[in-house]
C-alpha cells in the first residue's frame, strides 16, 4: 500500500439483481475510507447500504448479484479480481462483518468458546491452548464479565447485548483491519446501545480497525462517525465529515432527514412540529427521471427532473450529488419559510 492510496477505495460500485442484474439496487457508489477511521453509511431500508457492504465483503450468493465497479480496492488489493477462495481467505483476517441479529450468525448448538476458537483457527495455525488463551483475551476485550466461565455458555444463555459483544469478539479475533457493522445496535436497548458504541470506539483506538458502520439512526452517526456517506434509493447522495454533514448539509435529502428526526437534547426547547419529507421512498421500478429525490425535494429546480446530477464539491472533502446544493442563504430562507 502506498501512502497516497486510501485504505479502502470504491469507485462507481453498482450492484444488480435479477436477470442480467436488471434490478440495480446500488448505482455508482464511490467513497474512500482511511485506515483506523469510522465511516457511517446512512440510509433508509432499501437504500442499498447493506448491499454495498455485502459487495465489499463479496458475500453475495454466487450468481445472485452482478457487482461492477471501476475500483474496489482494500489495503492495496483489488477485491474485484479476487476469486471466492481468495475472498474467503480475506474475510475474517483482513475484513469482517457483524449483523443486526447476532443469533442468526451464531450456531445455537455450539458453545461460544468453540465458535470463537473455530473462527480463529480458520485463519491462523495455533494450538488449542494458544487459541483458548486468545479467545479469553478477546472476550475480556469486549468486556464479557466472567469471561472464562462464559466460554462454555451457549448463545441462548446470553442477553442480546452480550451476544452482540460475542459477535464483535468473533469478528475481531483475527485482528481484521476493516470491520463492517450492519445496524449492530438497532435491535438493542438504548442503554445497551450506548455500551456497544463505546466498546466499538474503544476497540478501534486499540486495534486501529477501520469501521464502516451502517445505520439509519442519525444520533448514532453523530456519536461515532468520522465521515458520513448518505444513501438514498440505491445511490450515494452526499459524503463528507460528520461535522459537514450535520452542520452544513448540502443535499435536500440529508437536510430533510436531519430536520425530520425528532431528537431530544437536554436543555433545548423541542420544536412544535416536525418538518416532514413529503411522499414515499420510491421503489427501484419507479425511480423518477433525473435526481432520485426530485419528487420529494423542496429545493428541486426544473433541471433536476432532466438529468442525474454529478458529484460536485461544496467544500474540501465534502461532496454532494445535487445540482442545487443548499448553501447558507438558501437554508436561511428555508428556515424563514418554516417559521411563517
Amino acid at each position: 500500500m502506498t501512502a497516497q492510496q486510501p485504505f479502502l477505495s470504491l469507485r462507481n460500485l453498482s450492484v444488480g439483481f435479477g436477470p442480467q442484474g436488471a434490478i440495480r439496487a446500488v448505482r455508482d457508489v464511490s467513497f474512500d475510507l482511511e485506515a483506523g477511521k469510522t465511516l457511517c453509511l446512512v440510509g433508509e431500508s432499501g437504500s442499498g447500504k447493506s448491499v454495498t457492504a455485502t459487495s465489499i465483503m463479496g458475500l453475495h450468493k454466487p450468481g445472485s448479484a452482478v457487482v461492477t465497479a471501476d475500483r474496489l480496492r482494500l489495503d492495496g488489493r483489488d477485491l474485484l479480481s479476487c476469486d471466492e477462495a481468495q475472498l474467503s481467505g480475506l474475510r475474517g483476517s483482513l475484513m469482517a462483518m457483524i449483523f443486526q441479529d447476532p443469533m442468526s450468525s451464531l450456531n445455537p448448538a455450539l458453545t461460544i468458546g468453540f465458535q470463537l476458537r473455530e473462527a480463529l483457527q480458520l485463519h491462523e495455525k495455533v494450538s488449542r491452548k494458544a487459541a483458548d488463551a486468545r479467545v479469553l483475551e478477546i472476550l475480556q476485550w469486549v468486556r464479557i464479565p466472567d469471561a472464562a466461565r462464559r466460554m462454555n455458555a451457549y448463545p441462548h444463555q446470553l442477553s442480546g447485548g452480550m451476544r452482540q459483544r460475542i459477535m464483535i469478539a468473533m469478528a475481531l479475533i483475527c485482528r481484521p483491519r476493516l470491520l463492517i457493522a450492519d445496524e449492530p445496535t438497532t435491535a438493542l436497548d438504548v442503554t445497551v446501545q450506548a455500551q456497544i458504541l463505546w466498546l466499538l470506539s474503544e476497540l478501534q483506538r486499540e486495534f486501529g480497525t477501520a469501521i464502516i458502520f451502517i445505520t439509519h439512526d442519525l444520533g448514532v452517526v453523530a456519536e461515532i462517525a468520522d465521515d458520513v456517506a448518505v444513501m438514498y434509493a440505491g445511490t450515494l447522495v452526499e459524503r463528507g465529515s460528520v461535522h459537514d454533514i450535520f452542520e452544513r448539509p448540502s443535499h435536500g435529502y440529508t437536510a430533510g432527514l436531519l430536520r425530520a428526526t425528532a431528537e431530544f437534547v437536554p436543555g433545548e426547547e423541542s420544536l412544535g412540529r416536525l418538518e416532514e419529507i413529503p411522499g414515499n421512498v420510491p421503489s427501484f421500478s419507479m425511480l423518477p427521471k433525473g435526481c432520485s429525490f426530485v419528487d420529494r425535494c423542496r429545493f428541486a429546480a426544473p433541471s433536476c427532473h432532466e438529468r442525474t446530477p454529478d458529484w460536485r464539491q461544496v467544500a474540501e472533502g465534502h461532496d454532494t450529488r445535487c445540482d442545487q446544493p443548499i448553501d447558507d442563504a438558501r437554508a436561511a430562507s428555508a428556515l424563514r419559510e418554516t417559521m411563517i
Binding site: F17, G18, P19, A22, I23, R24, S283, F284, S285, M286
Partner: peptide, 9 residues
C-alpha cells in the same frame, strides 16, 4: 433501462 425491472422480476 427501458423496462421496469421489478415488474419483469
Amino acid at each position: 433501462m427501458t423496462m421496469s425491472p421489478s415488474k419483469t422480476f
